[in-house]
Design a protein around this nucleic acid. Structure first.
Length: 118
DNA sequence: GCCATGGCTAGTA
DNA sequence: GCCATGGCTAGTA
């Protein structure tokens, strides 16, 4: 009998690890943004958006990992370890602008990063 | 095991 | 509500 355990494993969602997120982040070029939810989806766990935010907050190297390029699904800024202000500055430096706290042309600059093969 | 903790979100009201 | 982690508590052995 094919154990329930095995079936369970097959149905199990992928666990997201910090490094997966950081790696993916590096695919977002300056001038573009992605969202917490999109990253969660790309990494195979669509409902883990909140976890993504938590992981970004633990980002050890904001230089290597541009976590400021991740915003909320509604186009609002979202949080930032060093203050939302700082996040906004960084994004503006990359050419973005905001209206009522929402990224201008959100739909145009939003990208859906693809995960690396293998 | 249980519970709180987070840079959130889809879907009602 | 949801996900993974870390800290702590009952409650076994």
């Amino acid at each position: 009998m094919l154990s329930e355990c095995m079936e369970k494993n097959l149905a199990t969602k992928i666990k997201i690890k910090n490094e997966d997120v950081y790696e993916l982040l590096q695919k977002i070029p300056p001038g573009n943004v992605s969202t917490y939810g999109d990253l969660a989806r790309v990494l195979g766990n669509p409902s883990a958006s909140r976890l993504i935010g938590k992981i970004l907050g633990e980002n050890p190297n904001p230089i290597r990992v541009p976590c400021h390029r991740v915003v909320m699904s509604n186009g609002k800024l979202g949080g930032y370890r060093y203050g939302a202000n700082k996040k906004k500055e960084l994004l503006e430096k990359e050419g973005l602008s905001f209206i009522n706290g929402v990224v201008s042309d959100f739909k145009k600059i939003r990208i859906y990063p693809e995960q690396r093969q293998s």
